[in-house]
Amino acid sequence: MLRDVGFRLAPSGVLILRGPNGTGKSTLLRALAGLTPLAAGTLLWAGANALADLAEHAARIAWLGHLDAVKPALTAAEHVPVAALAAVGLERYADLPARLLSAGQKRRLAIARVAASERLLWLLDEPTTGLDTTSIMQFTALCEAHRQAGGMIIASTHTPLELSNTETLNL
């Protein structure tokens, strides 16, 4: 599905995947997460094969797919620690069952889970889908904070993110 893809990402680096629908941005993200096996090629993490131990690789990754993985019956606070909800403006809804949240609020909940994960590499598939301007700014601030701490981000997106020093991979 994808051929001749190559990139290198340093600590604090941000890689934006671009390309029209169906070019394999999501597939590449799933492959980077170890969910979809690589047909050929290697993924190196600090010089060693990253996919040799999938459980170990998973412990480096925070995943935000195109689905939010939010359980309607559980409250927001049962998905994400309350402290992390404030960063996405959901602290007022901590005890509300997630089924009462709007699509944008569910997306923010999923983003808060990524931010609270303390994983080094964030893999984000269209992270800003359904978000309003304020939420996009909150999301950008979370991304910057993650970079400050040395974290890395690989995101597929159609809407440009207001992040400095990003690299772009056109698929």
Partner: peptide, 16 residues
Amino acid sequence: FEDGTLDLLLLSGLPA
């Protein structure tokens, strides 16, 4: 599988 939780479970660090 339908709501995306399965991906998170497989990436939770727990083996499949």
